[in-house]
Simulated assay, not measured.
Amino acid sequence: MEVILTILFFTVFWAAVGLMGPSLVSKAHQQDLVRCIFLLAAVCCWLFWLCCYLAQLNPLIGPKLTQETVRLIAKAWNHPLKEG
């Protein structure tokens, strides 16, 4: 549930930047260019954030630990190993 809320929060945030950003800039003769820059920046930042966030949720490559390292970590954390 928190994953969906996080994605929704940042989507709303970058949508607000893209839609309300141009209103913060004075009315210039290049208003269309400014609007395009704000919208493109917001979309790129949102897409970059989404890719990084989703890559951390389900990594393709995990750490490769030897059995000895796993035993040392379990001993340091006072966690009994399940033999199997």
Rank of each mutant, 00 (worst) to 15 (best):
L65W: 05
K64R: 13
G18K: 02
I4Q: 09
A76F: 06
R35W: 11
N58L: 09
L50R: 04
L50E: 07
L24C: 09
N78E: 06
A55H: 06
L8N: 00
A41T: 10
L39N: 10
A16I: 08
P59C: 01
Q56I: 10
I7G: 00
Q30N: 15
E83F: 04
V3G: 03
L39Q: 12
L57V: 07
T11A: 05
A15W: 11
A74H: 03
C51Q: 09
L60N: 11
G84N: 07
I37G: 03
C45M: 10
Q31S: 11
L8A: 09
H79L: 10
T69G: 03
L60M: 05
N58P: 03
V3R: 15
T66G: 00
L60W: 11
V3E: 08
V12W: 04
L33T: 14
A76P: 03
G84M: 02
V34E: 08
V3N: 11
K82Q: 09
A15D: 02
G18M: 00
G18E: 00
W46D: 04
M20S: 11
E68C: 00
G21T: 06
E2L: 12
V34S: 05
L72W: 08
A41L: 11
C45G: 04
T69Q: 08
V43F: 07
V25E: 13
A41R: 03
A15K: 10
A55E: 12
I61P: 02
L5M: 08
K82H: 12
C51P: 04
A16P: 03
G84C: 05
V70M: 01
I61R: 04
T11H: 07
Q30E: 12
R71L: 01
Y53N: 03
E2N: 13
V12D: 06
R35D: 14
P80Q: 02
W77T: 13
T6V: 09
L33D: 02
L24T: 14
L8H: 03
M1D: 10
G21E: 02
W49G: 02
F10K: 06
Y53Q: 06
A76R: 04
C45D: 12
L8F: 08
C36H: 12
A74Q: 00
Q31C: 02
V34F: 12
F10H: 09
A55C: 04
I61H: 06
R35A: 15
V34W: 12
P59S: 05
L19V: 15
I4Y: 09
C52N: 15
M1L: 10
A42N: 04
H79T: 13
F9A: 11
I61A: 06
L54A: 01
C44E: 10
L65E: 05
N78M: 04
E2H: 13
T66Y: 01
C52K: 12
D32Q: 11
W77N: 13
M20D: 15
P22E: 07
N58E: 10
L40M: 09
E2A: 15
M20T: 15
H79M: 14
K82S: 09
G84H: 08
L47N: 10
A55N: 14
V3P: 00
N78Y: 01
N58T: 12
Y53V: 03
Q31G: 06
L81E: 00
V25S: 07
V12S: 09
L40K: 11
L50N: 02
P63D: 02
E83Y: 07
F10I: 04
K64W: 14
P59W: 05
I4C: 01
H29E: 12
F38R: 01
